[in-house]
Amino acid sequence: MATGPTGNDGMLRIPCPHCGERDYTEFRYGGDASKIRPPHGTADARAWQEYVFLFDNPKGAHLEYWQHVLGCRQWLVLERDTATNAVGKAHLARSQGSP
């Protein structure tokens, strides 16, 4: 924890739909947002196995979850290019389908 929000490691800038553009150090990463969680109670273990363990590793456009933990605490879906690290748009995860 030698560096942090005031350290010299500021890199990604993430456009929080609620708070505006912020340093990535205010966020926590939450994984692949293109995966759809099986509905609660889904009894098919294979569906859960697929959801929990199997990930694509795309080069290029990627959707991922980030939570603005030091801000509004909202989970976002962020577009990020895994090849260039370029950040695109973000929308609140709970407003699914309406970015």
Binding site: R28, G30, A33, R37, H40, Y65, Q67, V69, R73, Q74, W75, L92, A93, R94, Q96
Partner: peptide
């Protein structure tokens, strides 16, 4: 504590909206 809080928020905001 922090992990559980984020996890509950994750479930409520992404899956069980």
């Amino acid at each position: 504590a922090a992990e559980v809080m984020s996890w509950l928020e994750f479930l409520l905001q992404t899956a069980w909206i």
